[in-house]
């Protein structure tokens, strides 16, 4: 009886560790495909060709937002503090869109290196606080608490 139980115990251990190893290998192999977006500095390494649809994530550079005369097209720069990419988007922006905000845009690079977005999503960070606390932080000279999208792949 005791040996039977031992056998089952080994079965459970082999089952869990086997599947964990298989999954780890699969995830490692598909690592690049599991990224929801590229950051501007990853873009130079990622081999994206012209007309290839992909997502780009970063912070909207302060002072870079320009509304075009047609009233619905917006141009801005995205940064991850290492690289910077110019983005153009025609359409309604999400409520959280503002300078300094993290966003994720889906679109294509055109010939001149301008990223033409078809969709813009706001990336909310993990900070939660009442407005008064945010005000106080700002007054104390602290930076606006935005999270910088991660740039490391490895």
């Amino acid at each position: 009886m005791a040996t039977k139980r031992k056998q089952r115990m080994i079965f459970v251990i082999v089952l869990i560790s086997g599947f964990a190893a298989a999954t780890a290998l699969a995830l490692f192999a598909f690592q690049k495909n599991l990224l929801y977006f590229y950051s501007p500095s990853q873009l130079s390494e990622a081999e994206v060709t012209e007309d290839q649809l992909f997502r780009l994530g970063g912070l909207v550079v302060e002072g870079s937002v320009v509304r075009m005369p047609d009233g619905i097209t917006t141009q801005f720069s995205l940064t991850d503090m290492q690289g910077q990419v110019q983005v153009e988007y025609t359409g309604l922006l999400p409520d959280l869109f503002r300078e300094g905000q993290g966003i994720v845009a889906q679109g294509k690079l055109n010939a001149s290196g301008l990223f033409v977005a078809q969709e813009v999503l706001a990336k909310h960070d993990e900070n939660y606080m009442p407005p008064e606390v945010a005000e106080a932080l700002k007054a104390a000279g602290g930076e606006h608490p935005v999270s910088i999208p991660k740039t490391t792949v490895e």
Binding site: Y38, V104, K123, E126, N127, M129, P149, K150
Partner: peptide, 20 residues
């Protein structure tokens, strides 16, 4: 592990949780 649209953990950073 990956770039996601979903935000990172808030509470499990026990030393300094990012919620008031």
């Amino acid at each position: 592990w990956w770039n996601t649209l979903h935000q990172g953990p808030t509470v499990s950073k026990f030393d300094s949780p990012s919620a008031h």
